[in-house]
């Protein structure tokens, strides 16, 4: 006789563990793209889909979850008539004021974000999946819904365009567009 235990279908433990292990990462991904309330709604739908399609969820679910979250958010945005502007959000939310890491690092981060903001959305996406969320090639390919070979090609092209975008603002380049606290110093 089990007293004090809530009777649950056996798979709920699986869902709770999936949530415990990955909800923070999925929420981080979503918060870079939308407000907190929408991010929570999309996250809840993402894990509900994971439950409904649990036989499709791979043993390493990270890329799969990012892929579902991307699609759910895209549908949400289409219904709202808005577009994703991940890097623009970072630039306007003043997250990169000079702090403990020093002004040079802050300038470099700002320049990198400006370069990322100038890229196409597909280029930016492939770079961020690797550079911000540390996805492996297999995970990133799964998140994007493409083969690893296609992902590798996309990443190669995106890196090339990023280097070109960074070039005018690397040392010795133009200072235009840098934050006011730098040009005033």
């Amino acid at each position: 006789m089990l007293l004090g235990f809530r009777t649950r279908p056996p798979d709920e433990g699986w869902l709770e563990e999936l949530f415990r292990q990955h909800a923070d990462a999925v929420l981080t991904f979503l918060r870079h793209r939308t407000d907190h309330e929408t991010a929570q709604d999309v996250l809840a739908e993402t894990f509900t889909i994971a439950w409904r399609r649990k036989t499709d969820v791979p043993a390493d679910p990270r890329g799969w979850l990012y892929g579902v979250a991307r699609r759910v958010l895209a549908n949400h945005r289409r219904s709202q008539g808005r577009t994703e502007a991940v890097v623009e959000r970072m630039l306007t939310e003043n997250r990169f004021e000079p702090g403990d890491s020093g002004i040079e690092d802050a300038i470099e981060r700002h320049d990198t974000l400006r370069a990322l903001a100038g890229l196409s959305e597909p280029d930016r996406e492939v770079l961020l999946l690797t550079g911000w969320y540390d996805l492996t090639a297999a995970q990133a390919a799964q998140a994007l819904g493409c083969s690893q070979a296609a992902y590798a090609v996309r990443l190669h092209r995106a890196r090339k365009r990023l280097r070109a975008a960074l070039n005018p603002i690397t040392p010795g380049g133009s200072l235009a567009g840098r934050p006011a606290w730098e040009t005033n110093s």
Partner: peptide
């Protein structure tokens, strides 16, 4: 990781931890 990707990584915003 290549230099350009390392640079992207250094521009990464803070991660959410402990929310779940």
């Amino acid at each position: 990781m290549n230099d350009d990707l390392r640079r992207v990584s250094r521009a990464r915003p803070p991660e959410i931890q402990g929310w779940a």
